[in-house]
């Protein structure tokens, strides 16, 4: 069981790292928000699930699952709020024609 939990934790850490790299590499706010919402949320969910498995079914693992449920709903909502305010303030998205902009 501990090995399974550590494998999940490792996968979560990898996704979290990919999310960070994406936030640095991608060209504009909208694409960066993709990197901030998807790999990051999955990384956190996998990590918390792995910790919950290592912890082994006591009250702490229930709380870890509560964090998972909260973040899985809250993270997309926060990204959506940022994206909406970006659209309403008229931030233009990057398109392929525009070349690299870091």
């Amino acid at each position: 069981m501990t090995v399974l939990g550590l494998v999940l934790l490792f996968a979560g850490a990898c996704f979290v790292l990919i999310g960070s790299i994406g936030v640095i590499r991608l060209p504009d706010f909208y694409t960066r928000a993709h990197a901030a919402s998807k790999p990051d949320t999955l990384g956190l969910v996998l990590s918390m699930a792995g910790l919950a498995i290592i912890q082994g079914g006591d009250l702490s693992s229930i709380k870890l699952l509560l964090i998972v449920a909260f973040v899985a709903i809250a993270n997309p909502a926060a990204t959506h709020a940022l994206g909406r305010s970006a659209v309403r303030s008229g931030l233009e998205p990057w398109t392929v024609g525009q070349g690299a902009k870091r």
Binding site: Y30, A33, H34, S37, I73, H80
Partner: peptide, 26 residues
């Protein structure tokens, strides 16, 4: 629908105004 779009393949909900959805696709 908005949260599902944000979490799934390469799309991310920008704005929901009434019935109209604005989605950014990577």
């Amino acid at each position: 629908l908005g949260n599902s779009i944000t979490l799934t393949p390469g799309t991310f909900t920008l704005d929901i105004d009434g019935d109209s959805f604005l989605v950014h696709a990577i």
